[in-house]
Amino acid sequence: MKKIIPLLLLVIALGYSIFQLTEKKQEEKKVSKNDSYIASIQKMGVQVGQQAPDIELMTLDQKKVKLSSYKGKKVILNYWATWCPPCQDEIPVLEKFYQKNKSDIVILGVADFIGEKKDLNFVNNFVKKNNMHYQILLDEKGDNFRKYGVISIPTTFFINPNGEVIYKQIGPLTEKQLNQFLK
């Protein structure tokens, strides 16, 4: 009996090690699949190095604005929606960055107005509730989401003063990424 206990402990330890190794490999597969998904959608739509297509959007006070009117400035073009949890998570990061750097950059938050059921009051209330002071624009028909090839939100394009896309981020932005844009 005394000889069986150490052997039993060894078998349990070996079984646990195999279980841990299997779990780690499954987790790596999940991460790899997620990375593959992001890499595949990264290749869709407007790409780094291309000129940013000009788009015309509606402001919250129902005026038309063209992206080309910001030529000569650094622009962060952020596609988002009120119903999107990752978008909601990045709002404070964008707002903090905007408040700190508003003389050096323009942030254009392009809301998915179709997904908002075209309720301007709802979007206005959301913007006020979340203390969003950067420019919020509405994609009235979804044309601009399509023009940029946005299929996952948030998606953000960093555009240099010459109108060229210099960085594309699918998923929430970090403070570090935003600060890199200023350099």
Rank of each mutant, 00 (worst) to 15 (best):
R146L: 13
N101Y: 12
N125P: 01
E164H: 01
N125R: 12
A52Q: 08
K74F: 06
K29M: 13
K141R: 11
P154N: 02
S17W: 12
F181R: 08
K73W: 08
K118W: 03
E164N: 10
K30G: 00
R146V: 09
K30T: 12
K117A: 09
F145Y: 15
I170Q: 05
Q42E: 15
V93T: 15
G109A: 09
K3E: 14
P172S: 14
I105L: 11
A13G: 14
K3D: 12
I166Y: 04
I107N: 03
A81P: 03
L178K: 09
S103R: 06
T22G: 06
G72M: 08
T174Q: 08
K147F: 01
D54A: 06
Y79W: 05
F126P: 03
S17V: 01
E140D: 11
S40P: 10
V150P: 05
T155K: 02
P6Q: 04
A111M: 12
K141W: 01
Q135Y: 00
Q50M: 15
Q99K: 15
I5H: 01
E56V: 14
Y167G: 00
I5P: 02
I18E: 03
T82E: 14
F122S: 12
E28M: 13
I105Y: 06
I18P: 00
K96H: 09
I76H: 04
E23F: 06
V127F: 05
K147V: 01
N101K: 07
S32F: 13
V123C: 03
G109M: 04
P53L: 03
A81F: 09
D104F: 00
G171C: 07
E140T: 13
Y70H: 09
L14N: 01
Q62H: 10
V75M: 06
Q50F: 08
Y167I: 00
A111F: 04
I5Q: 01
D119W: 09
I55C: 07
F19P: 00
S69P: 05
E116P: 07
A81I: 07
V31K: 14
N124R: 15
Y167Q: 15
Y134V: 01
K74R: 15
K117T: 10
C84G: 04
K96Q: 12
E164R: 13
Q47A: 13
E175R: 04
K176L: 10
K25M: 11
V106P: 02
V75L: 06
V46T: 15
P53T: 06
F158W: 09
V46G: 05
G115S: 07
Y98I: 05
K64T: 10
